[in-house]
Design a protein around this nucleic acid. Sequence first.
DNA 1: AATGAATGAGCCTTCATTCAT
DNA 2: TATGAATGAAGGCTCATTCAT
Lengths: 195, 195, 195, 195
Amino acid sequence: MGEKSDQKREYILDRAKEVFARKGFLQVTMKDIVEACKISRGGLYLYFGSTEEIFCAILSKQWEEEDGDLASNLGETVGMADILMLFLKEQKKLILCKKEDMGRATYEYFFAHKPKDISENILRNQFKTAVHILTRILEEGTIRGEFYCENPKQEARNLMYSIEGMKICSRTMGLNESQVDRELLYLVSGFLIEE
Amino acid sequence: MGEKSDQKREYILDRAKEVFARKGFLQVTMKDIVEACKISRGGLYLYFGSTEEIFCAILSKQWEEEDGDLASNLGETVGMADILMLFLKEQKKLILCKKEDMGRATYEYFFAHKPKDISENILRNQFKTAVHILTRILEEGTIRGEFYCENPKQEARNLMYSIEGMKICSRTMGLNESQVDRELLYLVSGFLIEE
Amino acid sequence: MGEKSDQKREYILDRAKEVFARKGFLQVTMKDIVEACKISRGGLYLYFGSTEEIFCAILSKQWEEEDGDLASNLGETVGMADILMLFLKEQKKLILCKKEDMGRATYEYFFAHKPKDISENILRNQFKTAVHILTRILEEGTIRGEFYCENPKQEARNLMYSIEGMKICSRTMGLNESQVDRELLYLVSGFLIEE
Amino acid sequence: MGEKSDQKREYILDRAKEVFARKGFLQVTMKDIVEACKISRGGLYLYFGSTEEIFCAILSKQWEEEDGDLASNLGETVGMADILMLFLKEQKKLILCKKEDMGRATYEYFFAHKPKDISENILRNQFKTAVHILTRILEEGTIRGEFYCENPKQEARNLMYSIEGMKICSRTMGLNESQVDRELLYLVSGFLIEE
DNA sequence: AATGAATGAGCCTTCATTCAT
DNA sequence: TATGAATGAAGGCTCATTCAT
């Protein structure tokens, strides 16, 4: 066990992630993952007992990795507006499904698994973290005179709900880049002070 | 044929709708619907060939029925702010899943059925219609001096994206009424002129 | 459903009984029964959900059928010794597994399914019924002067335990007819009055 | 090899015995035993190739150990009635499953493995030995005037069949201590001379 | 000797779909 | 039209057994 197993575990999670990205959560079977991994049925069960277990493992891993991506840059000498743009650019990718991510799978998973232990809900945590980062950006930007924003926290929340809305609209009814740009621009224009 | 068949068709759709509202789209089987309808397996197949067919039929029906619910009131003597509140109240119900609707099922369905024929995409049409109605409300309200809104169309879009975002957040991570109220209030405060 | 189904149900039970008689209980799979019945996998599940369910159905059926086989003859003009011999002859068949019965399967089943609801335990009921019948035979025979038996109930119990013992010995270590005869003769000799 | 291996062999048999006592024979898997032994899968296969092999090894070992437990006491100055009581007390424990023994497992094993090589059948040997011991007890007791028994061998056989019957009844339909006592008392009363 | 990862066969169960009535 | 029995494919899970280390 140990090192070798961990490696294979990671390998399985990586392959499985591709499968989830392609098929969502509900329609993925253990067989799908077995085939994607090119291992035996029994082999997979050595590591994970169900698609749910695999899915949760991927979410956890992702959560750990993402930690403090943007947050670290706060307080640097870069302009807050730039950081905000960086943040929105990332979100835009997610909205437009540029990088085949697990968005759909995640939605499907949490549709069916209502938040029992609310603190355990990764989606919630992700959302809260995003709001937190945005709030700090808005606050700092306001202090520096780059933004005009009376209620940064609320504004941050508003931004995130809109972005979530676009994510879902993009996946269910299709959105193109210019539509997203237009909307993001409008959102930002509410507090951005043009030079 | 004819009338009698139509009646049964409607009956099936009504029962099926309850099932979809309860279980989403992907996890509903023909068996589930057969049982909900208390008809025979073969009987169901006389009317519909798959869950997808049934689901689409429900969506179409719904679309026809909803048509011009609110739109009809526009132009009446009631205040636009009141109409807006009525509209938001309806949306709030959907966000909080007060009336067990097919929200989740619809998301699941359109996740998997990417908008091929875009004009056929009902979600898109619903969204566009909602934006259209909101736009008219905002325009009329602005004319009447109830709102201050420079770009009603864009504002309407923004509102709808936020609302979509809340819908999804409510279903996946849980939202309570006060959270929704706070957000809606904030959104409206951007253009509502207080007396 | 109804008649037709009942017929098939019986058919399945009959085939399954052969399987249980051959393989015991624990080693019988749904697949075995499917094959014995020459029906489809799903077809079997239409009638029974598990080997246990099938097994219990067979036991119940058997229990109903056996009812009052010997008991009916009591009180006739035949000699009690003759009736006793008839009874023992039946038991001898079971001991020697002359008719491939479900003895082994039944033991295996009740080994694993400890008597929760004791009154429901068919083995117990069968045993009690046998003891009851024997008791009546002994009582009546004593009255008629064919037997000398101070405690018919206890003697009946003793007989049945010995017979049970022979059943198990026959199945596990092998017994031949003369061994059984010798033992039964000895048992009977304890209360039989020779002419 | 040699000593060390033997030690491990014994260790495995001891753990396996517990498993068999708990689950019978048929439902025990190699996996169960591997887990009970806390050794590796491959490790177990170095010593035994199947559950059957393990089970037989346990039976053999047991047989060797039990040898002449009671037999040794015969001829002492103790009363034969006392020795008989000792013997019956042991049997009572087995009947009531006081010490979790391999009774059920043994039955299950011999149900499926019909006595091919009859002399090899351990159950048979155990039974014969028990009968032999009982016979000697009865003979000696009769000589000493403690018992009145015309046919000790046959009486011994009868006793053992009854005891076997109670064992099986206890395991399949449940017997309590007083029921066993009553039956044993009745059996003994047939030849015991009260002072 | 010993390990334990890996394989693949085998059984379980559920459904979509067909078809004789 | 309507029924529901029947089929068989698909996916889930567990183990006996092997084998590289």
